[in-house]
Structure formats: structure tokens, C-alpha cells
Design a protein around this nucleic acid. Sequence first.
DNA 1: CGATGACTTGAACGCCATCAATCGCTGTGG
DNA 2: CCACAGCGATTGATGGCGTTCAAGTCATCG
Lengths: 226, 226
Amino acid sequence: MLTKFNTDPGRKPRLSGELGALSDARVSSAEFRYSAGTEIFGETEPADYIYQVIKGAVRSHKLMADGRRQIGAFHLAGDIFGLENGDFHRFTAEAIVDTKTRVIRRKSLERVAKTDLAIIRSLLKTTGENLAHAEDHMLLLGRKTSLERVAAFLLEMHRRLTPEGAIALPMNRRDIADYLGITLETVSRALTELRKNGLLKFIGQTQREIMVVDPAGLAQLTDSLG
Amino acid sequence: MLTKFNTDPGRKPRLSGELGALSDARVSSAEFRYSAGTEIFGETEPADYIYQVIKGAVRSHKLMADGRRQIGAFHLAGDIFGLENGDFHRFTAEAIVDTKTRVIRRKSLERVAKTDLAIIRSLLKTTGENLAHAEDHMLLLGRKTSLERVAAFLLEMHRRLTPEGAIALPMNRRDIADYLGITLETVSRALTELRKNGLLKFIGQTQREIMVVDPAGLAQLTDSLG
DNA sequence: CGATGACTTGAACGCCATCAATCGCTGTGG
DNA sequence: CCACAGCGATTGATGGCGTTCAAGTCATCG
């Protein structure tokens, strides 16, 4: 079952902390569940809601006419997604595993934001974090080798998932590949190489649970210093 | 001289319009000039100022240890750059040609922004536009072929520079290549192919002035529909 | 005019993509 | 309980797009 690879439910997500002013009492929100593989919203659809992952994992992607896909970001517990400045979504968002989200009506947020400085500052902060991530990812997609990409991905997940012990990846090799701008075969080969070089270990026989043995080594690889 | 390839000085840049609330009377600003090739600020430097291009062109890039470079954006007349959410710049910015900028002290802006909702909204809008651009660029860098990348670049410049008549590119082939995540030779070959197929023409013998003959054809290429 | 820099073009290479086979795990049904 | 289908992942063989290396053109400038 895919759901067993969810982010560790024992670790408390920093929901209110991350959401900041979005958890304002005057902003109404509801919970919503999406089963693995289902679409949360589509690219170019009206952006009427803003989402926060409570449990599970979400991918945001763009699709080309012939099926080529680029995943712009993975959203894990605590992350906000679907926040747009324009009227429409710019990505398609799908639940990777069974996922629980908090859903906020955009109009509700905007009504409060009209007069509340803290809320807008919070939106600005979130948007700025998304921008910073995209900027880093442009360097990865434009200039890094496949091994550097996979190393960077592992470090990102190492940082965002449980830093202690093994990380349980919610996404499959194809998702990783489409996030890194390579093919799933190349992802697999890179993981094999990193494993053979002792930088990581596979836990169990699932290939989704990975133990990062040498984060510093991965960090060097990411920038091609080592 | 490179400066002759500046964006058309006859066309009035939308300075106040683009800057929006940043042109607030309470925010002090000064003009500053940078000659071609000089650094405006460096990656990881404190982000004490925010900039707006008055005339000229600027490139923002990240550099890897071994010299690989990824240009995240070109900034043309009217554009704001150097706006950060954190305390440090995340790109190095350099003048591509002789460039005149308006410089705003960040603290000055933040002081006003503390109480002024319109200013913050303006910052949010600018950050959101940067994010949207980065999101589109991730798809380009991750999944598009070299021909699609160059076609997309030409369309972007066609839109942002004078839409009527030829476009005068301020940047050289290497800049274009580092923006598109390919090599300058590949850029050159793609331009040659597009020229042979009648989608564009070189004006004069400079190879920097390009006439987009068939924007719709380029648009099809960009998405690989044609 | 010789030097320099930007650009183009050609030839060969290499990294990653593509195509394909296989393995292991899981769930299902006889 | 085992056969088998199905999916995810790995591994191998081959090919191609873009890189790398190199030469040559053209415009500019000392």
C-alpha cells in the first residue's frame, strides 16, 4: 500500500507555525481528503481555494501537449500550495498518497487581508519562499548533472522529511524524474551509484525508504565540489 | 558599441506604472548608473537596496563552483530586481549594457510598508510575477528541447521589447545560452534553423537585431505542437 | 592592418534518453 | 497454497541530442 510511505505521522507537523497568519480565526477553513492519485485542482482552473497539507503529500506539475511533465514542487505536511496572485492556478496539483488538507476559501482570506497587514505579510513570506525554491530549482534544471540532481533531491527530502533515521519517500521514481528533469531510469541509476558509493542505503525491500548515510558527501556532489 | 543595442529609448518605459506603490513619495530613491559588464550586487550579499531598470538591461545569475552559470532572469526597462524576502540577495546582478537604475533603500521601503497596505500589496504582486516567471522557466529548463527553448526566448523578448519591428537583443549568445540551460553553439544553431525556416530574420549584420517574422509559428514550436 | 571578440559552422564525443528485458513484491483467483 | 498478472524498480543495449573541441568568418577597434 502506498499510504504506508506517508510522512511520519508521529512527527508533529508545524501546521499553525507554517501557516502563520493564515490560521487567523476570521478566516474560515475546512478539512478535505484526497485519495492517492486524485487531482486537487487543474492548471488554468480558477484559484478559488488555498490549501495546506495536514497529512500526506502533493505534487504540482505543468504538462506539455505531448505529455512531457515538469513537477515544480512537492508539498509535504505543513506546506501551503495553490496560493496564486492571479485568478487561475498555474499548476495541476495531485495527491501522491492519501492526503488530508486544510482548505481556505480565497475570498475569505482576501476579505481579511484587505485590512490586515499581518495576513498580507504572511502571504508575501509564503510567496517569497516559493520563489526562492523555484530559483534554486532553475539552477538544478538548467545546469546540474543527473547525479547532482538526485543528490540535491535526497538532501531536500532529508531536510524536509524526518531528518533522523531513514526518509520515507511518498513519490515514485517517475515523480522524482519529472521533478528533476530527467528520466526515471536515470534516477534509478543515480541512486544505485550513490548506494554503491556508500552515500545512502535502502531500508527494507521497498526502495522508497532511504537512509542518507553521508549528507555531507551528498552536499559536495550537489555542487560538484567532491 | 554595445550600448547601441539598448532597448529602444524612444519607447517610453512604464516606470511608474510597473513600480506601482514603490514610487510612493515617502520612499526615497536615487538614480545610479552601471557601465556594461559591471556587477550591481553579488549573490549572498546583504539585500539593502531594491532596483528598477530605467534604461539598459541587467542579468541575474547563480554560479556553481566550477563556473557553470544559470541566468534566472533578464531585467529590462521598467523591471524591478533585487527584491528579496530574506536578508541576502539570491542572485548576482550585472549590467549587460550601460544601464541606469533607480535605487531604493530597503529600510526606507520597509518603514513605509509597516503601515501601508498598498505598498505590501505591490511587493506581493512583484514577487508573484517573479514566481510565475520562474515557474514557467522550470518547465522550459526541465523539459523543452533546445529549439523550443530558443523559440520561447524569442517570444519572451518579442513581448518585452518593442513588439513592432525588429527586436534589439542587449545580451550575447552566451547570456542567452545560460538563460536557457544550453550552450551558445546550440543557441546559434537553433537561430540558424529558425532563420532558414523563415520564422525570423537577422536585420543588418549584427546578429543582435532580430525580426520575428512568424510569432505564431514560434509559439507552436515552443509547445511542440507544430 | 593586426588583434580581439562575437558568432557561425563542422566533427566527434558523451551523457542521458529510449527501448527492452528482468526482478521482486503484492494482490488475486483457481 | 500456488500460479499469475500487474506494478515499480533495476539493469542492459543502443541511439540521439546537445556538448565539446576546433576552425573559420565578420565586424570593430587599437
